[in-house]
Design a protein around this nucleic acid. Structure first.
Lengths: 336, 336
DNA sequence: CTATAATATGGCATCGTTTGCAGGATGCAG
DNA sequence: CTGCATCCTGCAAACGATGCCATATTATAG
């Protein structure tokens, strides 16, 4: 059983081992009769070439790498992560690639992992997520000419292959939806102020207001962390204003949920007194009453595009636009 | 840059390539002076051995495989999955292994993936999750002598390496906690009736009742699906009984959440009128009011034990107990 | 001073594929 | 019947690292 290699197939089929290899690689040069003879033996024994030998010979592992930036604890309950992984896997599979996932908790750890993956040639290319400004990984990979694609946080000035969701556009759509519903006192609850995603969506929010001639009111913009508690305290602040908003756009479903609960605790009815829209369309949306309207990030597309680009890059095919923006979509439920 | 192999290091250090290999593998036979000379060059060039060549030569890829049973969509938002992956990764890393994750949507797909991973020798061993009764994968792997470890759903009669959480014990702990709080009308909301996890926890629930001399009341046992809605309708049924329960043990935080919301909708106060305990200690617990008491499945331990066992198996070390049960822990919050 | 052992190093085959190259077989035309 | 082109097929050299075996060097004892 263990000695199932091409030489064995060759011996049984009465041909040379090179011919077996050619048959398996669909070399058009081989005679039809030979091909059948070899294939018969291959089928009978259920032979499949050894990936390890192929990797060495071809200098290619058919493995793409994904390194999670955060530590295992933090990403443990991250729905974005699992969805991404799932879709990367299924896309990769279509091209006969597999996925190698890694994660590191410390910054040193990342550095080490990247260096290792790069130099051991364990993977053919990398998908990066959650990059930081001036991410040193990017410089390193670029310098090495190692194939990689970045998901999220694209900087226009980067000459890098990137796939990102359209945060500005998504926030615009959501804000416009609220405006169309007749709201003009609309608040924005962001995440930590430094993050690109917070900034981008704020920009979309402001653009929508501007386009509809609604004045931008800085006291309607509050920042929280990514917790339900953060959403609650942001909402508390908003409701204590003289003219509290009638609608709230939250950066995140979790923030939106906190805000929703805080509003209800203070006796406001949702959506009658205050409308709430979240982001990401997580399962949370249908677990609360009223069900949360949310902007769905198109994770399948994000993952598919990134994976496909990476494989194109690995196999040396030209990749046309360096950056691609994936549109988001509003999922209307009853909280707005 | 590309030609960074041992022959190159050897040339620069003025030794043979075999010596370079020995130095890198800490062969005690090499002279200290040589070792330093070689290491200097290795450090200077940042050389790391090629994993592909090592894989072929050693007949070992240092890759463990994890194949998700469900389709990408279904596992996309599964917190159990992401936590598991994260902890497998970090454990594997300690032993210098990496993780290759796969998933297939159809049953045919699984079969194909398993056959491929088995025969191409792309991974050294497999971690299986969510096995079914009479899982054909298990027979196949056993027959091939391929190293694998099963997480969850252990059958005592299986002669297989398994790690599972102690569902019976966990349900007992939770039920006893409720009994100690003075409850004697305690209900159980299960998942689909056929699942082992539903059965095991029901058993723990009944054992706890019995131990404290509380009669088992079949009308206090209701089954739902794994949705928030399922929990709500189960709770509705329970509250319409003549003697509604004063405490509910739900199989799942999502079910518990649905039950909680339904109780509140019907004007019951939690925990004053009815106490609720969930399972899994998901982030949901702290997102609802009152915060949900929940039995925490020890995913880190589950993942760590499984990974460690698999690696022991791969490297031919003896693995003492074939089955290991990981205890669960009650996380007390305010819903009970 | 020689014989033997101990130690350190290099040479070489090997892991299972792929692929360039050479050459044998066949066909066709002159 | 010979010469040449056209197909195939097999041989053998990689891919990069490892470990067995042989051998050079030095130490130790007789």
């Amino acid at each position: 059983m263990a000695e199932l290699k091409q030489t064995e197939i060759a011996r049984l089929a009465g041909v040379s081992q090179a011919t077996v290899s050619r048959v398996l690689n669909n070399d058009p040069q081989v005679n039809e009769e030979m091909r059948q003879r070899v294939l018969a033996v291959v089928e009978a024994l259920g032979y499949v070439p050894d990936a390890r030998a192929q990797s060495l010979r071809a200098q290619r592992t058919r493995l793409v790498g994904l390194v999670m930036h955060r530590d295992p604890q933090a990403l443990a309950y991250d729905p974005f992560f699992s969805a991404l992984v799932a879709h990367i896997i299924s896309t990769a599979r279509q091209f006969n690639y597999h996925l190698c996932v890694d994660a590191a908790r410390s910054v040193k750890g990342h550095r080490a992992i990247y260096e290792e993956l790069l130099r051991t040639r364990r993977v053919d290319g990398l998908i990066l997520v959650e990059s930081e400004t001036n991410d040193e990984r990017i410089a390193r990979l670029t310098e090495q000419g190692f194939p990689f694609v970045l998901i999220g946080r694209y900087q226009p000035e980067d000459a890098i292959y990137t796939v990102d969701n359209d945060n500005v556009g998504a926030a615009m759509i959501a804000t416009e939806y609220l405006i169309q519903k007749g709201h003009c006192r609309i608040a924005y609850i962001g995440g930590p102020a430094g993050l690109t995603v917070t900034r981008d969506r704020l920009q979309g929010y402001r653009q929508a207001l501007e386009q509809h001639g609604i004045a931008y009111n800085p006291s309607y913009v509050v920042y929280g962390d990514f917790s339900s508690r953060g959403g609650a305290s942001a909402m508390a602040d908003l409701l204590m204003l003289n003219q509290p908003p009638t609608a709230v756009l939250a950066l995140d479903d979790v923030l939106a949920l906190g805000a929703l609960r805080e509003a209800q605790r203070r006796g406001r009815r949702v959506p009658d007194d205050v409308s709430i829209v979240g982001f990401n369309d997580t399962p949370l949306c249908t677990m609360v009453e009223p069900n949360l309207t949310s902007v769905a990030i198109d994770i399948p597309t994000l993952a598919r595009e990134a994976t496909q680009r990476l494989i194109d890059l690995i196999e040396g095919r030209p990749v046309e636009p360096k950056r691609q923006i994936v549109p988001a979509q509003l999922v209307r439920r009853s909280s707005a």
